[in-house]
Write a protein that binds this DNA or RNA. Sequence first.
DNA 1: TTTTATCATCGTAATATTGCAATATTACAT
DNA 2: ATGTAATATTGCAATATTACGATGATAAAA
Lengths: 107, 107
Amino acid sequence: MGATKLDIYDQNITDIAMIAKVFAHPARVAILQYISNQEACICNDIVDEIGLAQPTISQHLKVINDAGLLHGNYKGKSLCYCLNIDRFKAFQELLNSFFNTTQTNCC
Amino acid sequence: MGATKLDIYDQNITDIAMIAKVFAHPARVAILQYISNQEACICNDIVDEIGLAQPTISQHLKVINDAGLLHGNYKGKSLCYCLNIDRFKAFQELLNSFFNTTQTNCC
DNA sequence: TTTTATCATCGTAATATTGCAATATTACAT
DNA sequence: ATGTAATATTGCAATATTACGATGATAAAA
């Protein structure tokens, strides 16, 4: 009990849910917005910007990264996280395809 | 510790996160898809369709309803849930506005 | 090489979510 | 009013998430 029953849903449904989960925490939305607005995107800057501890930010970054939304390059001693814009746009399209195939048929 | 710190984020960021949370569970995505594809949308049908117990479905419906995504009409002895399509489209636009203002500036 | 700065991982406590059985409520038919 | 079918609520156990201090790893600088 307690755990999500993943085996009973269609693949496209679990895909939508997994994408939405990335955006389902304000820290991750804020991180994504921040990264996309900066030229250099160093993790410690995010810690300063958002009022959360460094391990917490790092944990959220891992969730975002596991979803394939980041790629990082080393620049000096700081890690530069950048948005994987192709993946990001693919997420947008998947969500829109769900929204657009949904209609109201009754009431 | 453990609870999301909601007070440190901009309103639009928490809005996006709250919307995404509704779609962040496959049961809720499946319910929304199912409702939108049926002519009559009775809860017990959803229980049969998705392999979850009636109280669990009812709980997920409450989350969807609390987000303003449903309106219900009574039809005979069964409750007819219907998609609040205006709210649904508003959700889509908010998500798209977030996606569209996000760019990649480095790496 | 030692220090320093930056980011990741581990361990853990607090809180939230998920799922269901039992029970309550609601609306309708009789 | 009473019975019945459909949905909601409650209470609880299992699991997941969030947050952070302590610690570890890595790379540049001293």
